[in-house]
Amino acid sequence: MFKNFQSVSKCAYGRGSFDKLGEIIAPKRSENQGYFIFLIDHYFEDKPDFHKRIPAESNDVVEFIYTSGEEPKTSQIDELRDRFLQSKGLPAGVIGIGGGSIMDIAKALALMFTNEGSSVQYQGLNLIKKPGVYHVGVPTISGTGAEVSMTAVLTGPTKKLGLKCDWTVFDQIILDPDLIATVPKNQWFYTGMDTYIHCVESMTGQYKNTFSEAYGYKAIDLCKEVFLYEGSGQNPLNDEKLMVASYFGGLSLTYSEVGVCHALSYGLSYVFGTRHCFANCIIFPHLEEFYPEGVKEFKQMVEKNDIFIPKNLSQTWQEQEVEKMIDVCWALTHMWKHALGDDWEKKLTREKLKELYYRM
């Protein structure tokens, strides 16, 4: 397998590095119309002390984005792009401060400022025609790997699929472990498990390789230190470990691929709006036949950290909802090829997918 992928150009790491954001973006302020858009998770909207740390100048836009409901949508990206272009023109850059959803919104918006039409038409691999504006990612929760990935996952009218190309990747990221210190426990776990599941899947399939394994095994080791071994739990040292694990996990899947859990998760998120990391945690315990050791360790981590994972959700699902989930996940051929091989359609049936969904 050959991949020639773009990685993040610059990465600032360490406690207090967030306070260097203004200095980092200053050289870009003369570009385009000279203003920056700060997209910030709504979690910080009522935290005035955090507001003081945002290096927004008078011409900049600070927009708090609600992320507790459904995941980012193509319609949301199109609306933001059109509104800012009409009111202020082309920005110097976009800065995303928050979790995986904010990372994806920032990446997608940066691309759509320079690519005509709806973001719907760019859902897929290398469909973007032009590089976007300068964009910076500042994760405040760790696990999705969105800060380093070349994908901005969006839910559109007919599918959940990413804008995926070299230009999606952030020009700059800032990894400050202090920013993830106040994440609520359950969300800390769900998002952290996205890294763990990324790596289990990237290293269990036909596209795995030494590059993906090097990052993946280290990320898994760090996840075990954070969630399973003695000294596990939320503390400053583990915040640093989880932030690095997320980064490494993103690199592992970039040079390999995700698999069964993520394919099923896309279907669950599309139909019910279930947040991606939470959906993964609902699905993964039922995939022993695909990832026996990973599922065993996952269950140990759930018990160790006393985490709530819902069960029996499928009892309330309608037949047409399950069929739609199957439609969505069946279309993710790249994931199935990695997990099951090029002849995956001979090994997998819609009935099997239905049976997997009804386990949940």
Rank of each mutant, 00 (worst) to 15 (best):
I105A: 12
I174W: 03
L348I: 04
L313N: 11
S269G: 11
W330F: 04
N32G: 10
G99F: 06
Y255L: 02
A146M: 13
G267W: 12
A152M: 00
K73W: 11
P72T: 13
F189C: 14
L340Y: 06
H198D: 01
V322M: 05
G267V: 07
P91L: 00
G162H: 14
K130E: 10
K73V: 02
N238I: 01
S68L: 15
L332N: 03
G22T: 00
E297S: 09
K218M: 03
D41H: 00
E70S: 15
Y357W: 09
A106M: 10
L237M: 08
F308N: 10
V183A: 12
L179D: 13
S17L: 05
L348T: 01
F272N: 03
Y207P: 02
P285Y: 14
L348W: 08
I128E: 04
L242H: 07
E201W: 14
L154V: 00
L332Y: 06
A339Q: 10
P91G: 00
C223Q: 11
S30K: 15
F170E: 10
V61I: 13
L251Q: 11
L127H: 03
Q187R: 11
I54Q: 06
I37T: 09
A263L: 07
W336L: 00
K3G: 06
F298N: 02
R81C: 10
E230Q: 11
Y291K: 04
E230H: 11
Q320T: 07
P48C: 04
